[in-house]
Design a protein around this nucleic acid. Structure first.
Length: 428
RNA sequence: GGAGAGGUGGCAGAGUGGUCGAUCGCGCCGCACUCGAAAUGCGGAGUACGGGCAACCGUACCGGGGGUUCGAAUCCCUCCCUCUCCGCCA
């Protein structure tokens, strides 16, 4: 969400940001609404002011038993009331109009974000590790899992539908081991472990920017109480700061949360239909940082390096991509994606996305800090990143650690979490 | 699910129709005293929006929304939330 004052003062920068995202300029239309709003406000407040002073004088006149003056003043107030009622209605309307326009405008990409319309404009920042030489034709992760008898999409289709899976035995355990390992690694670096609600209200979804624009992507409860299944732990965890004013000493706050994530994948028909790459439900370990604005880009580098550390520890080859202006998410000003190597696809695939949303989400949820330089509450900066997607990490381990005989090696850092097992074999 | 009690500024807690954006206390900031600190004294301090070059002025906000009234933190309706007891339950 934009600060309308900022648009007023920086209309060119605002339109430039929209243009970089491939959207038409909107500052003129928004500022016209803003002017209308102020004209309405001035009228309304004048009338309210008149009513307030007259009402006080009525009190005084009555106390002085001056009924004639009181009666005259009451007539004045009656006249002002009509203006007030109309003005309040107009203000409500114009506020709603402005909110409607602003709430669907994405964040401005930061200057150092590369130009580009879509993912083809993303640029590689660095590449770490080398793809394994397997010496045989690599299988896809779902072939490996099904052959082991530990991954079952057909049963899941009967129970839940497409894009769900049952994990069994060693695979289920490895998923759990991955998540626990990741959490342990992040808490050791000072992140506070959070177990948040998996259902959130509309305001929370608005706060982080999933709503109002992307309602189709979310699962929603059908009962009397409207709740959304979280598409990422970013939503509940970032919203912990909603309507708070944090002291400067409390920043940065670093949180790690392991949760299931639920996505309708409404626009993904036909993409990644087989396997676990794109599911309606998947687990993710999420990192969230609440930062002072001045530190937020240093924190983005740090956050990204912490997500990378997971892949390094698992010895999975990956690369870091800087998303271009046309590809950064709605709420983000700058995003790095981590992409992990999948031998069966001979491709790097997204496994983490690390974003600095600057004040965009903070303004939506009124998350502030008290700036000691000004003494005033100001929006803080919010960052989030996957550290990392657990389901996709499992996919990457299956493919990169597969053996010719169909078994799968266990990365050494995971072995302590799996009772010392060094490989996954079929269920006995 | 049933019964009751509440939601007021960073915290705690007054305020039941007018001069209340709101007493007092704690905490916070500044100043004085002190070598320094503590204690004490004096002073300051909410948030948002609008107007103004500024000093400053105005408007709104006492859980949300609506109503009564010339005037609402205070009265009425409604919704939400919290707490206590009972029931049920992992």
């Amino acid at each position: 969400m934009y600060d309308i004052k900022w648009i007023r003062e920086n209309p060119e920068a605002f339109d430039k940001g929209l243009e970089r995202r491939g959207l038409p300029a909107q500052s003129a239309a928004i500022l016209a609404l803003d002017e209308q709003r102020r004209a309405i406000l001035i009228k309304l407040q004048d009338a309210q002011s008149l009513r307030n002073t007259a009402s006080k004088d009525i009190g005084k006149a009555k106390a002085a038993k001056d009924e004639a003056t009181a009666a005259k003043l009451m007539a004045d107030v009656a006249a002002a009331k009509d203006i007030i009622a109309k003005g309040e209605e107009q203000e409500r309307q114009i506020d709603a109009d402005i909110e409607k326009v602003l709430s669907v405008i994405p964040n401005t990409p930061r200057d150092d974000v590369p130009d580009g319309r879509d993912e083809t404009g993303n640029t590689e920042v660095r590449k770490v590790g080398t793809p394994p030489k397997l010496g045989f034709a690599p299988k896809q992760h779902f072939e490996i899992g099904e052959k082991l008898g530990l991954l079952d999409f057909e049963r899941a289709a009967k129970v839940s539908g497409s894009r769900f899976a049952f994990l069994k035995g060693g695979l289920a355990r490895m998923e759990r081991a991955l998540a626990t390992f990741m959490i342990d690694q992040h808490t050791a670096r000072g992140y506070e472990e959070i177990l948040p609600p998996y259902l959130v209200n509309r305001a929370a979804m608005m706060g982080t920017g999933q709503l109002p624009k992307f309602e189709d992507d979310a699962f929603k409860t059908a009962g009397a109480q409207e709740l959304f299944l979280i598409p990422t732990a970013e939503v509940p965890v970032t919203n912990m700061a909603r309507e708070q004013i944090l002291a400067a000493e409390e920043l940065p706050r670093r949180y790690v949360a392991h949760t299931p994530c639920f996505r309708s994948e409404a626009g993904a028909y036909g993409r990644d239909t087989r396997g676990m790459i794109r599911q309606h439900q998947f687990d993710k370990v999420e990192l969230v940082i609440l930062s002072k604005p001045a530190d937020s880009y240093a924190n983005l580098e740090l956050l990204t390096s912490h997500a990378e550390a997971v892949l390094r520890a698992l010895e999975l080859p990956y690369r870091v991509m800087a998303l271009c202006a046309g590809d950064v998410g709605f709420a983000s000003a700058k995003t790095y994606d981590l992409e992990v190597w999948l031998p069966s696809q001979l491709k790097y695939r997204e496994i983490s996305s690390c974003s600095n949303c600057e004040a965009f989400q903070a303004r939506r949820m009124q998350a502030r800090w008290r700036n000691p330089d000004t003494g005033k509450p100001e929006p803080l900066h919010t960052l989030n990143g996957s550290g990392v997607a657990v389901g996709r990490a499992l996919v990457a381990v299956l493919e990169n650690y597969q053996n010719a005989d169909g078994s799968v090696g266990v990365p050494s850092v995971l072995q302590p979490y799996m009772g010392g097992a060094t490989r996954i074999s079929p269920l006995a």
